[in-house]
Write a protein that binds this DNA or RNA. Sequence first.
DNA 1: AACTAGTCCAACCGCCTTGAG
DNA 2: TCTCAAGGCGGTTGGACTAGT
Length: 185
Amino acid sequence: MTKPPQKRQKKRPWTPEEDDKLKQFKTEDPNLPWGEIIQRAKLERGVKSCSQRYNNHLKVDFNKEKFSPQEDELIICLRCLDASWASIVKFFPGRSYNDVKNRGYQLKKKHAPISDCVPRDDLEAMTAQFASLITNADPNAISWDDETSDHSIRGDGLEASTSGSDDLIPNNDPNAIRSIPGPTS
DNA sequence: AACTAGTCCAACCGCCTTGAG
DNA sequence: TCTCAAGGCGGTTGGACTAGT
């Protein structure tokens, strides 16, 4: 039994009043479940809609400036290394998950994948270099786990491994940075 | 001025994981 | 162990805006 495709709801932009209520109730009691917040604030929204709105727009004062070339390059490199969006976002503390993800999809359209033509070691070096060029991004704060393909940010700074771990070790060789190939038409 | 194509961003959906009971 | 609800994540879509013709 296959579910019939559900018709997509028409987009309904959030009003400043809804934002205010959401922010107010969430700030008053951060542990309150979204369902409870929706009831108390009398919001005609779903749980997901509310949580996404809060996390992508209201949580903090997000940086809405354009992405710099360095930021773009970092996103490209991380995506080529199969880093999850959740991990990539941690390199951009002032930006929302949605912003980084949207930027990533834009760049995907513009750039050909470089993972096929650039060795993984080089990609990791490039990633560390780009990360170090971006304010607040700590090149030492990324680790690579080949077994899980998960690339996560470490909160404890660099502990360069000497025992065969595949952790990224920052490469100070300026030649490690190469230009990213443009789109192949 | 009017139309079209492209871009950007917010909102939505489905799948998956997690944790409580 | 199982079930279910909540929330996280990745991907997609709709609509506003802008540049080009």
